[in-house]
Design a binder for these strands. Structure first.
Lengths: 147, 147
DNA sequence: GTGCTTGCAAACGTTTTGCAGACTC
DNA sequence: GAGTCTGCAAAACGTTTGCAAGCAC
């Protein structure tokens, strides 16, 4: 699966900080801590989860700062967000993004390997001229247990 | 593509009203008008669109009544809702539901034919035991014009 | 009359915004 | 010092809920 438009490969917190400074941004400690959390943590973190983790290291970082920095990091292509259901969006490093299957009955979340979309990607491109990126919204359905 | 769990085939407003009464519900005029709107209108109507259309015929119907009735109609399997982007959900008759491809750049919405998902559906079932219903969340990507 | 349904207002959860002060460069 | 970034409060957005009055049966 192709990366999202604008995805950037960055391996460390300092890489991203350098990128932000190169664009005229400042290297603030909220940003560094937010990035540390994103690099260390697992997937499927929503803004609230991230805020809690950041606040363990710096209690006064406000959730609006989290949102503003998440937005900026998306503009830079460092992270992406996805919608796994009706709740809050989840954020992850762009390089780790993947699609999800979610069971409508039990909520089970399966991280879908990219190969599974190869056929659909080819058909959508040849029949509709459309290049899919199946990672933004989850695909609902019924899991093995529930069916 | 299989229908959503609980989908019901109903051809007319009166069919649905009869169904609701059979379950102990009342045949109110807000409900009839809401159903008329759903049967007459095109796809991709959000709650606000529906409320406006209903209010042309009965100005005092409140949007909370619209939401309550939409929810009940979903419980009965008469309609489904889908998420085409970051805005409000859209509602349609379950029998007309279909998947969507949406361009991340220009917003173009393609109504995806069900056959296009056959391969993915088979792979997901055999590899993951998961039966997909690709109609709830749109699939993002880049359209022919934008790429 | 029973009890489902409605309108209204108020709350909800998530996200965005305006502003004045604080910080980075 | 210029301009970015922050915390806070408040608003925005789509949706849900509590309640008392209204309506279908």
């Amino acid at each position: 699966m192709p990366k999202d438009i604008g995805d950037v490969d960055v391996a460390t917190v300092e890489d991203v900080v350098a990128l932000m400074r190169a664009r005229g941004g400042r290297a603030t400690s909220s940003r560094r801590i937010l990035l540390e959390v994103l690099f260390e943590a697992g997937n499927h973190l929503d803004a609230e989860d991230i805020a809690e983790a950041v606040q363990l290291r710096s209690p006064d970082v406000h959730i609006s700062t989290i949102y503003r920095n998440l937005e900026e990091l998306q503009r830079l292509g460092v992270i992406v967000h996805s919608h796994l259901g009706h709740g809050p969006a989840t954020y992850q490093l762009a390089s780790l993004a993947h699609a999800h299957f979610i069971c409508e009955r039990c909520g089970l979340t399966i991280e879908a390997p990219d190969e599974i979309f190869k056929g659909l990607a080819r058909t959508a491109r040849t029949k509709l001229g459309f290049s899919i990126d199946p990672r933004h919204f989850a695909i609902l359905g019924i899991c093995a247990q529930c069916s």
